[in-house]
């Protein structure tokens, strides 16, 4: 699973990293670091919860076969 990060939409709610701190890394101001995220096998549930709690809808789950690969 991959998470597409729409960095410009991030407003620093930090809901994602509260759910999955190892998946979603923040900068010193508390905003998400740029770049899409490849999620490791064991972290998918938490990562998906984190992405789905973003109030700005800045995190998009990509479950296409290529992303799963």
């Amino acid at each position: 699973m991959r998470i597409i990060v729409h960095k410009a939409k991030c407003q620093g709610h930090a809901r994602c990293s509260a759910q999955a701190p190892d998946v979603f890394k923040l900068d010193d101001e508390g905003y998400i670091l740029p770049g899409d995220i490849e999620v490791a096998e064991g972290e998918q549930r938490l990562a998906s919860r984190g992405a789905r709690s973003c109030p700005e809808r800045a995190l998009e789950l990509d479950r296409t076969p290529a992303a799963r690969g």
């Binding site: 407003q11 620093g12 709610h13 809901r15 789905r52 709690s53 973003c54 109030p55």
Partner: peptide, 13 residues
């Protein structure tokens, strides 16, 4: 699934 708005949306979050 709780994208609540208690702290607002946008740059003024």
């Amino acid at each position: 699934e709780n994208r609540h708005a208690a702290f607002g949306y946008g740059p003024h979050r």
